[in-house]
Amino acid sequence: MFVQQLINGLALGAVYALIALGYTMVYGILHLINFAHGEVYMLGAYLGIIVMGILTIAGLPVYSLSLAIFFSILISMAFCALYGAAIERFAYRPLRTAAKLAPLISAVGVSIILQNVVMLTQGTEYKNLPPLLPSEGFAVLGANVSPVQAFILSASIVLMLILHFFVARTRLGKAMRATSQDRIMAGLLGININQVISITFLIGSSLAAAAGVMVTLYYGVVHFFMGYLAGIKAFTAAVLGGIGSIPGAMLGGFMLGMIENFGASYISSVYKDAFAFLVLIITLILRPSGLLGEKALDKV
């Protein structure tokens, strides 16, 4: 049972980690908690199901299921990247010099708008995606790793490696790190701050969209309210790992997924959600900067 729960936890954690990355990257640069991020994840899940439907009409899954999944993730990521950048452009950029609370309220507003737009256009009921991949996978130490779980784990690790390479090795990544250290100084040195911020939102939102499509494949249901809880849990994961830290968000996501699964199986499945928030409270009391976060220094 332990191995099975470990695998369940890792798959769930990979999803949390992908969403948490968006929170942490935006916080690192703007010191803003982007509460609309969970909604971008929800949009990604809906887009995934819509694209999958269109591809099915076009007959693609008959030729190749993996190609259809690949395309639906790619298209959903592209759309949501644009959504994320547009949210930044219209809801956050005009408020960048305003008091700190203003963009936060704007974020909550965007979240409510997106939820309601989806509710009105897509309806309030669950949308279903029948299981596309077989449920019997391969046995690992007595546990069943289903193809979807294997896919989620490998795809999210690939995406995280790409992100890590991008931030650590490319010119744009360097500009991003510089902006997060000191936005004004980076601007004085010739970095196009607006461009860097837009790219941060593009990347964060596309990762959330990938998570959304993966969850749709995994559970087969999407709902206009799904972004709320997932967003809050991913935020918890980001805080656990240390908000602002990219490796921290990955670690926090995986840890949160496992804490939830082990808590639900060994203690009580009724309090599954409570474990996540217990972790948030304990982190905030004992180590407010998170596991891998650095102590925030007051810039003088």
Partner: peptide, 20 residues
């Protein structure tokens, strides 16, 4: 004997515990 949370997308933890 146990309860689950309505609307929770993931019930794998409780199902694995049942399987045991």
């Amino acid at each position: 004997y146990g309860g689950i949370v309505q609307r929770d997308p993931d019930y794998k933890a409780v199902l694995t515990a049942i399987k045991e």
